[in-house]
Design a protein around this nucleic acid. Structure first.
Length: 649
RNA sequence: GCUGCUGUAGCUCAGAGGUAGAGCACUCCCUUGGUAAGGGAGAGGUCGAGAGUUCAAUUCUCUCCAGCAGCACCA
């Protein structure tokens, strides 16, 4: 038998017979390791203890202490254990797929009756039985024909489809047994079900999910579970979810009296005075930033004839998602069909097209706080994060091809500065390339993608690839922020577009005196004010930075005899540019402090007899229990400075 | 849009085939209180909308609307 050399993490190498399994290697080291082992890493690849090793390799044997591998296996085995539990409880349920995801796993089932919360309890109990039974996990390599024959016989038509979809590139088709229940799986898995910590998982919810993610296909039932290495980690995770729920922008929006939404205008925001203060403060900041960044600001119509949307290509692709406005004009022979603008770019091209543009005008950075309306599918609506009426901090940079790189770098820099000012140090960047349905030739896409990618890399910006997710007219860079419970939201974006200038016939006169096609860079920093404010609220748990806080200071009287002084203090603060309010209600100071703390007011100034006499205030800051006495002039200076936007400091 | 769940006072929620309740908020009165809810009284609801079953529906059934979770979508 041939010999192979396995190198351990400590650098020592040992000889073994070729085809040895990590389980046997572990057994050769010690009995306890043999029992504790869960999997191995062979040349960087996560490896089942049962899989043979055929050549020299680096080897590491994992136990439950090794977090990434342990979590992967626990969650993956639980997916199988759950599927087995479901089929034991309801033998006619068909199984499909069950991958590991962040914090847990899910498994999709085909079953006529919906799973109820009681069902989840029964499944969880059955899973614990399976874990307690410590059933052996065993694997075999099957031929494609055998796998298909098996699943055809058992009526598991989804599995047949999965086997057929496995590419014929020599990778083995594996079957895994958990006890006497079997599932198609590429592995790896644990040694036996008893290695799964039985007290560190929980079934969370059931929801519909399309088979293979295709909305034209069957709707399956997906059960989500979470799992960790031990009970404490699970408890910590559940506690984190509770804390996150308290930061939900929908809840805080109500508590802080920022906005509301109602049935008559689904997906549209009624901004209350407090919320509108945040909005306009942010908008003022963005306007200054854009001016400083070399943008010109414009404004374009809300209701635009369908002809323009047909020309731009949006009508064909997005008609279903537009608000259509029909006007039966008395003197018109036909009905005029307009659409509320779902985006600003075609209108910006109209402005660009007025008059002759020279290469000397480029790059032309045209910005608009553009109010847009999109008929988003009802199921997509989410608080103020995904709405039907919103305002983008939109801009289009008209430039030549050789300006793409500079403009991209310039934009990434611009966006980073703004995110930093707004307290977002960490954000994800995704690069989305050509989607299946798209406008423009492959040559144009090649050009756009490579230009954008090169510019992004040149800017030193790291990104992950998001294949097939680009806009229909061009590739895009997405700047992604995360909400309180870990959901990603695209906020900023940069999109390269060779298509729209063509369709809407935008030209400029080049240095050579002839006409050229400009490139358009669609870009937004916040994305929409609505979404960004939602993220801002969740990021700060409602405790917005002082300059953005809608109510910055409440001056509260301790006794009615201080009311005149309260009014005077509020007046002084307001003159210093601070958003201050008086609270001279007939309530105790405890009551006032509680109410304004709950309302996330950053600073409460309490005044009673002492303060009136000394012309001071007692300062209480949000999140601190201690108070301090300060002179009125001192606190006014301090707060006036804090009230300034970061770019004005 | 799809699957499932939900919709009762401004908010959070209880309730039941016989016509609606609590706490907080609100209004008024008492209290002038020193840093996270002082006391009392009062007012407040077409029980999401429409249809059906029933002597009787807010409760049961159906349709619609909206919200929530997930999926799909996201120019």
């Amino acid at each position: 038998m041939a010999q192979i050399s396995l190198t351990f993490p400590d650098g020592n190498a040992r000889e073994f017979d070729a085809g040895i399994t990590p389980a046997e290697v572990a057994a050769s080291i010690s009995k306890s390791l043999s029992k504790k082992a869960i999997s191995a890493t062979i040349n960087g690849q996560h490896w089942d203890l049962q899989w043979p090793i055929d050549a020299d390799a680096d080897i590491a044997i994992h136990t439950m202490q090794d977090a990434p591998q342990a979590l992967e296996l626990i969650r993956h085995d639980l997916a199988h254990i759950m599927a087995r539990a479901v089929q034991e409880l309801w033998p006619d349920v068909k199984v499909t797929i069950g991958p590991v995801i962040d914090n847990g796993w899910y498994y999709d089932f085909d079953r006529k009756e919906p799973f109820t919360p009681e069902d989840l309890g029964a499944i969880e109990k059955k899973m614990k039985d399976i874990i307690n039974a410590r059933d052996e996990v065993r694997t075999e390599v099957w031929s494609r024909a055998d796998a298909i024959a098996h699943y055809e016989k058992t009526g598991e038509n989804y599995k047949v489809e999965l086997v057929n979809a496995i590419p014929d590139d020599g990778q083995p088709i594996r079957m895994y047994w958990h006890g006497d229940w079997q599932d198609l799986c590429r592995g790896p898995h644990l040694q036996h079900t008893g290695q799964v910590p039985g007290d560190a998982f929980k079934l969370m919810s059931v929801a519909g999910a399309y088979w293979r993610g295709d909305s034209n296909r069957e709707m399956l039932q997906r059960i989500y579970g979470v799992a960790f290495q031990n009970r404490n980690d699970l408890k910590a995770y559940l506690l984190m979810l509770e804390e996150a729920a308290k930061r939900d922008h929908r809840k805080l929006g109500r508590e802080m009296d920022l906005f509301h939404m109602q049935e008559e205008a689904p997906g549209q925001v009624f901004w209350h005075p407090n919320g509108w203060t945040v909005y306009t403060t942010l908008q003022d900041y963005m306007r200054r930033a854009q001016r400083a960044g070399g943008y010109v600001e414009v404004n374009t119509p809300q209701v635009v004839d369908r002809k323009l949307w047909e020309a731009s290509g949006h009508w064909e692709k997005y008609q279903e998602n537009m608000f259509i406005v029909e006007v039966d004009e008395e003197h018109a022979r036909e009905k005029a069909v307009n659409a509320l603008k779902p985006m600003n770019c075609p209108c910006h091209v109209q402005i660009f097209n007025q008059g002759l543009k020279s290469y000397r005008d480029l790059p032309l950075r045209m910005a608009e706080f553009g109010s847009c309306n999109r008929y988003e599918p009802s199921g997509a609506l989410h608080g103020i994060m995904r709405v039907r009426g919103f305002t983008q901090d939109d801009a289009h940079i008209f430039c030549s091809e050789d300006q793409i790189e500079d403009e991209t770098k310039r934009f990434i820099d611009f966006l980073s500065g703004i995110y930093k000012d707004l307290g977002f140090e960490g954000f994800k960047v995704k690069f989305s390339d050509r989607p299946e349905t798209r406008a423009g030739s492959d040559e144009v896409w090649d050009k756009s993608e490579s230009a954008l990618k090169a510019a992004t890399q040149a800017a030193g910006c790291e990104f992950e690839l998001n294949p097939g997710e680009g806009a229909f007219y061009g590739p895009k860079l997405e700047f992604v922020l995360t909400d309180a419970i870990g959901r990603d939201w695209q906020c900023g974006t940069l999109q390269v577009d060779f298509v729209l200038p063509e369709r809407l016939d935008a030209t400029y006169v080049g240095a050579d005196g002839s006409k050229h096609r400009p490139v358009m860079l669609h870009r937004a920093v916040l994305g929409s004010f609505e979404r960004f404010i939602g993220i801002l609220i969740e990021e700060h748990a409602g405790k917005l930075p002082f300059w953005l806080a809608p109510r910055q200071v409440v001056v509260a009287s301790i006794t009615g005899e201080a009311n005149d002084y309260v009014t005077e203090v509020v007046d002084i603060l307001r003159k210093a540019g601070i958003r201050a309010e008086a609270d001279i209600r007939n309530e105790k100071i405890n009551y006032k402090v509680r109410e304004h703390s709950v309302g996330k007011v950053p600073v409460i100034l309490a005044v009673g007899h002492r303060e009136v006499e000394e012309r001071t205030v007692t300062v209480r800051r949000l999140g601190e229990n201690k108070t301090s006495v300060t002179s009125l002039t001192e606190i006014t200076d301090e707060l006036a400075k804090a009230a300034k936007a970061p770019d004005l400091l």
